[in-house]
């Protein structure tokens, strides 16, 4: 009876800045501000993966930080979810073609929610976390949870470090998370 109040109502997030330009990170901080107030949803921004339920990643993955991202993800206790914040985290964004960039965080960890935008809007980020929390609850109950993917089926991890690829792979443009703010967000000043 009480169990339904758990995961859905108190998703604690840990934020990992992979390779971001800090644009998305600033928007994340804006979520904590009185205007957006993450804590309304019981969301706490904890500083470490051990206490977190949701991993927020901003920025694309490169060679140096791929293992760090994996490490942080592995340290989170089950059930857990990952939210990719911004187009960089989703696909690599404008950094995708850099010589050292692997692509979106999907290359390393399974992603549950993509939040598009460059940078992602705070409303969208909050909504992403709430969506992730719902998935967490489903996962606890052992129900099947779909995982969206932005990686094209033909995609192969690029052999890096090497010269940048000549052709730009097509970037899919259908985000999994809704862009529009939900009704209750509209009420906030």
């Amino acid at each position: 009876m009480l169990r339904q109040f758990g995961l859905k109502k108190s998703p604690w997030v840990v934020h990992f800045n992979c390779n971001s330009c800090n644009g998305c990170d600033i928007e994340l901080l804006a979520c904590l501000s009185p205007l957006y107030d993450l804590e309304r949803f019981g969301i706490i921004h904890v500083g470490n993966p051990k206490h977190a339920d949701v991993l927020l990643v901003t920025g694309s993955v490169n060679h140096r930080n791929a293992r760090v991202l994996k490490n942080v993800y592995d340290q989170m206790p089950e059930p857990k979810a990952v939210v990719a914040v911004g187009v960089c985290a989703s696909t690599g964004g404008i950094f995708r073609e850099c010589y050292n960039v692997l692509g979106g965080i999907e290359e390393v960890v399974p992603v549950d929610v993509f939040v598009p935008g460059c940078p992602a809007r705070p409303e969208a980020v909050i909504d992403g976390i709430v969506k992730a929390a719902e998935k967490l609850d489903l996962r606890r109950r052992g129900q099947p949870v779909s995982r969206p993917s932005l990686v094209p089926e033909t995609h192969e991890p690029s052999p890096k470090p090497a010269a940048p690829p000549e052709t730009v792979p097509a970037t899919p443009a259908s985000p999994a998370a809704p862009v529009a703010a939900p009704a209750e967000l509209a009420k906030t000043p």
Binding site: K50, R67, V68, L69, N71
Partner: peptide, 12 residues
């Protein structure tokens, strides 16, 4: 599997 590394900013 529930015995995991301590948190060292992911750089263990």
């Amino acid at each position: 599997t529930q015995v995991r590394l301590p948190y060292l900013c992911g750089e263990n």
